[in-house]
């Protein structure tokens, strides 16, 4: 069974919502990425979304762009990211890992080879930012063969027709982009989240996670009322960037993430 399915089954059993953390592989460097992954799991993160750095991250806001740049300037490559995931697995980290990527680095690596190598390295799924279901035919069979999940995005602008199309191709979970725009922190959350999540559930039985712009414990709490899991990225990445490669990095990030996960772990008071 894929670790992602296992994780959502577990969460359901515990009647809990999941917490997904995004970091960019190689920022501040790949060894630290491995340490961060282990620390994030200990801090309560359920699924790790690991970014493959790319020179032209057009769906990302400035925080993630800069992280990508830092990672590339310190020599992160697709191959080294996969090796880092092997290392993370050797460090007894068992949480599901989803690779968050732009298309060109993996296309250039060779789609089939990438899927194969990613599976061997301990990856559980892919989230490709530039790959709508219409273009996703290429690696489909290899993904199935290796039991890897293809995570698709649904946006506030997606029509119901598109949601149906996406649902047919999606596996693992569906990622709802909470607002129109690039990644990055926002002070408030969109009102449309609840109705869009409801529409997605009409067409898919997969867990629905919500991300983009979620940066505060109260956002996490609110969004978790409607989603199966909540994704936080930029707020963590920004802190990693601010602290850099210092001895207190791991402890500070753990503390920050714990404060974000905490609203999901309080005993339920309402239905």
């Amino acid at each position: 069974m894929n670790r992602i399915d296992q994780k959502f089954a577990e969460l359901r059993k515990k009647n809990q919502k999941g917490f997904i953390a995004y970091i960019c592989a190689g920022d501040p460097d790949l060894d630290t990425t491995a340490e961060l992954a282990v620390a994030l799991e200990k801090a309560g993160v359920d699924i790790l979304e690991l970014g493959i750095p790319f020179s032209d991250p057009l769906a990302d806001g400035v925080v993630n762009q800069e992280a990508s740049q830092r990672a590339l300037s310190r020599g992160a490559t697709v191959d080294k990211v996969l090796k880092t995931i092997q290392k993370i697995r050797r460090m007894e980290c068992t949480m599901p890992i989803v690779l968050y990527t732009y298309y060109n680095p993996i296309f250039h690596y060779g789609l089939e080879k990438f899927i194969h190598d990613a599976k061997q390295s301990g990856v559980d799924g892919f989230l490709n930012l530039e790959l709508p279901p219409e273009e996703a035919g290429g690696g489909e069979r290899a993904m199935k063969k290796h039991e890897l999940h293809t995570i698709f995005l649904v946006a506030p602008t997606s029509s119901e027709e598109r949601i149906r199309k996406i649902s047919k191709k999606a596996s693992g979970f569906i990622y709802y982009v909470s607002r129109e725009g690039v990644t990055g922190e926002r002070s408030s959350m969109e009102n449309s989240i609840e109705s869009m999540v409801r529409t997605i559930r009409k067409h898919s039985r997969l867990p629905v996670v919500v991300g983009f712009g979620i940066s505060k414990p109260e956002h996490v709490r609110d969004v978790a009322k409607v989603a199966d899991a909540v994704v936080v990225g930029s707020s963590i990445v920004k802190k990693i960037g601010e602290i850099g490669k210092k001895p207190n990095l791991i402890a500070d990030i753990s503390k920050h993430v714990k404060s974000l996960v905490e609203p999901l772990r309080r005993p339920k008071t309402t239905k």
């Binding site: 057009l58 769906a59 298309y103 930012l129 530039e130 790959l131 709508p132 219409e134 273009e135 698709f152 995005l153 649904v154 946006a155 506030p156 602008t157 997606s158 029509s159 598109r162 996406i166 982009v177 129109e180 725009g181």
Partner: peptide, 22 residues
């Protein structure tokens, strides 16, 4: 119809733009 020029072209964009492109 999908915007492919032989093996080239297509629509490799974030989902948010797909409806606008349609």
């Amino acid at each position: 119809a999908a915007g492919h020029f032989g093996p080239y072209g297509g629509r490799f964009v974030p989902e948010t733009l797909m409806s606008a492109l349609e």
